[in-house]
């Protein structure tokens, strides 16, 4: 099954809508609550990153029997130093975004902690693509 959602950069009034819609899909598919939790945390953080940093973006989600792959592609500033961006507490968010309680430098680490595979590709002044894979059968997954 394939799902696609469009995200508008800067529009915090709709941030989280795609995650909310996909959460309902996962519930209908009877995915276990603990797995829904991991998928939704990773997806919401990635969705908010597009709203906070990019001009626009697209979320493509592929649901397979054993796993979910969420690919988030944005047009935006890109990430100059991905390793640095992954550090907890490092953030380039604007003061306005921080006042709302976002931009604490926890988003990407939240994504990493809840994903089984996380791939990030980014080009400066063009955009960023996140590919997040979460296994649906968590008992078969050995996590650190």
């Amino acid at each position: 099954m394939l799902f696609e959602y469009s995200i508008k950069g800067g529009d915090f009034s709709t941030a989280g809508q795609a995650s909310s819609r996909f959460k309902k899909v996962l519930q209908q598919l009877n995915v276990p609550p603990q797995t829904i939790k991991r998928i939704v945390i990773a997806l919401y953080e990635a969705e908010v990153n597009i709203v906070a940093h990019a001009f626009e973006g697209t979320i493509n989600i592929e649901v397979q029997p054993g796993y979910v792959v969420m690919t988030l592609t944005d047009k935006g500033p890109g990430i100059p130093d991905i390793e640095k961006a992954m550090e907890v507490g490092y953030s380039t968010a604007s003061p306005k975004v921080r006042e709302m309680g976002f931009g604490a430098g926890m988003g990407l680490s939240n994504i990493k902690n809840n994903a089984d595979i996380l791939e990030i590709q980014s080009k400066i002044n063009q955009g960023t693509t996140l590919k997040i894979t979460v296994n649906l059968n968590q008992e078969n997954v050995i996590k650190e």
């Binding site: 915090f12 009034s13 941030a15 989280g16 809508q17 995650s19 909310s20 609550p33 939790k37 945390i41 919401y44 953080e45 908010v48 709302m100 309680g101 976002f102 604490a104 926890m106 988003g107 939240n110 902690n113 809840n114």
Partner: peptide, 26 residues
Amino acid sequence: LLSDVMGHSQSGQIWITLQTHKNVMA
């Protein structure tokens, strides 16, 4: 901090905060 609540809260908890915008409900 919304990301901290997202990452560390447990379902069924009451969230105590001073944030008053719509994203809290998301």
